[in-house]
Design a protein around this nucleic acid. Structure first.
Length: 468
RNA sequence: GUCCCCAUCGUCUAGUGGCCCAGGACGGCGCCCUCUCACGGCGCAAACAGGGGUUCGACUCCCCUUGGGGACGCCA
């Protein structure tokens, strides 16, 4: 049997991290089995669905590299089909009109709560003669759920989960205004789309009981369910705006690479022995549902950062310069010059070893685009005080004669001078670093020289010498 | 409150009755490398929630307790 899956977010907010992982698992599972992966926008809540949210979902999926098959399905467009199914259930006596008012329902809930029952709706209209219907009230259609026995879900992740049918009340499938509710729409769409595997957050587990009952009532095949545990914040509480429940675009803005985020999300709740660094091709080859864990996990930025640093180091220099550019130009507030771009490329091999995010990368690359004369921070100013100046002056004269100009030639020149004057390299490297970057910390000093080029290097040295 | 689910180092996890006085990774700490910072290498501290069973033998199976989570909408 070929596999058909879907990711079905509701466009009422942005694509958050939990949703992204659900999408990733669906995508991985489908690609692993060579099936079809669909995207369905559950926009039946007209009041809360927004175009912006839909755009954010598309954008987030694309950025993460999760491509879907075929056209995007908008659930609201299928409302007539959903209503048709509701009416069929009604015609077959598997559903009924309910005329209870919201106030009456509220009272029933209160009573159920007081009695310690979970069954909310008391089935008032279930077997009542429609002739008793109050006039002027538009009824909802309720599903006639089985009242005894039990409903069992065979979940590929959670195992067999059973609930007594007495626990479940007759849910509304069609609202008074004739629009379908979630549990009906999902079942109809999943069936019509030929979905074979439903992989979603385990907050849907209890919905699954009712959905299963609808499938059975319609005589439809029940798909395989996999309810994956939710992702929690660092404090163990449900992910909210306070923690990591940011839109996926926020992670992009924080300078994370999509491949790193994919790897991180994959390892949250899924494992393959002791493997930690798993590229996408490998993930597709390995991913399956039996290694998905059942307990919720906490989102850990430190580990994401570590992974991101790993992927940054593995990335090509040119790609990194391109990826970092927006972050850097945001700092400079101007487009970079040719000399600066070239410098960045030259410095990238040593730069990328020092950054865990693109923001950090842009930060460390700051010396390349800094405007003369440089501002020295306290540690740098300290390096440029006292006898360092004389040494710097001598080094400047040696450097002026270096050709061609690169890390190896400049290093040879400075080392030779250090040896001749009996100085440790550090005694020269630190003042140089301060004069050229304005800081006491930077990539290896000769990489800095190479990245700046002869002209800029000598000019910055002159700045330092004339200032002291 | 009711129902459902979960429970190994701080965090993510390996472990499917003996290979485990529990392994890996992140984070922490220390050392090495070294022109600073990183990277890298080496090492250290750190967990089977508690209590009962079952068994020759439990991290692994069962029960209870405790703790955590989720669901209880004419939202999705």
């Amino acid at each position: 049997m070929s596999v058909v899956t879907r990711f079905a977010p509701s466009p009422t907010g942005f694509l958050h991290i939990g949703g992204a992982r659900t999408a990733l698992f669906n995508w991985l599972f489908t690609r692993h089995h060579g099936g079809r992966f669909h995207l369905r926008i559950e926009d039946t809540d007209r009041a809360r669905s927004t175009e912006a949210a839909i755009a954010a979902i598309f954008e987030g999926m694309r950025w993460l590299g999760l491509d879907w098959d075929g056209e995007v399905l908008f659930q609201f467009a299928r409302a007539a089909r959903h209503a048709e199914v509701a009416r069929r259930l009604l015609a077959e006596g598997k559903a009924y009109y309910c005329y209870c008012s919201p106030a009456e329902l509220e009272a029933m809930r209160e009573q159920a709560k007081a009695e310690g029952r979970s069954m909310r709706y008391n089935g008032y209209w279930r077997d009542r003669d429609p002739g008793e219907a109050p006039s002027g009230v538009r009824p909802v259609i309720r599903f006639k759920a089985p009242q005894s026995g039990e409903t069992v879900i065979r979940d590929l992740v959670q195992g067999a989960v059973t609930v007594a049918n007495e626990q479940l009340d007759d849910l509304i499938i069609l609202r008074a205004d004739g629009t379908p509710t979630y549990n009906l729409s999902v079942v109809v769409d999943d069936h019509d789309m030929g979905i074979t595997h439903v992989i979603r957050g385990d907050d849907h587990l209890t919905n699954t009981f009712r959905q299963t009952q609808i499938y059975r009532a319609m005589g439809w095949d029940v798909p395989h369910f996999s309810h994956i545990p939710l992702i929690h914040g660092a404090d163990g509480a449900k992910l909210s705006k306070r923690h990591g429940a940011l839109g996926i675009e926020a992670y992009r803005a924080m300078g994370y690479l999509p491949e790193a985020l994919r790897n991180y999300l994959l390892r949250l709740g899924w494992s393959h022995g002791d493997d930690e660094v798993i590229g996408t091709a490998q993930a597709i080859a390995w991913f399956d549902l039996d290694n998905v864990g059942r307990s919720p996990s906490r989102f850990d930025f430190a580990k994401l950062e570590h992974l991101n640093g790993l992927y940054i180091r593995q990335s090509g220099d040119e790609a990194l310069v391109a990826a970092m550019l927006p972050f850097l130009e945001e700092k400079t507030g101007r487009p970079l010059t040719e000399r600066e771009r070239t410098g960045l490329l030259i410095a990238m091999p040593s730069l990328k070893e020092r950054a865990k995010t693109l923001i950090e990368l842009a930060d460390k690359a700051g010396f390349v685009v800094a405007a003369r004369p440089l501002a020295y921070d306290a540690a740098a100013a300290k390096q440029l005080a006292g006898e360092a100046v004389a040494a710097l002056d001598a080094v400047r004269r040696r450097l002026a004669e270096v050709a061609p100009w690169n890390a190896a030639t400049t290093e040879a020149a400075v080392r030779a001078f250090a040896e001749a004057s009996g100085l440790k390299l550090g005694k020269l490297a630190q003042p140089l670093r301060a004069a050229l970057t304005g800081q006491a910390v930077s990539p290896p000093i000769f990489d800095v020289l190479a990245a700046l080029g002869r002209e800029e290097t000598l000019a910055r040295l002159d700045d330092a010498l004339t200032r002291s």
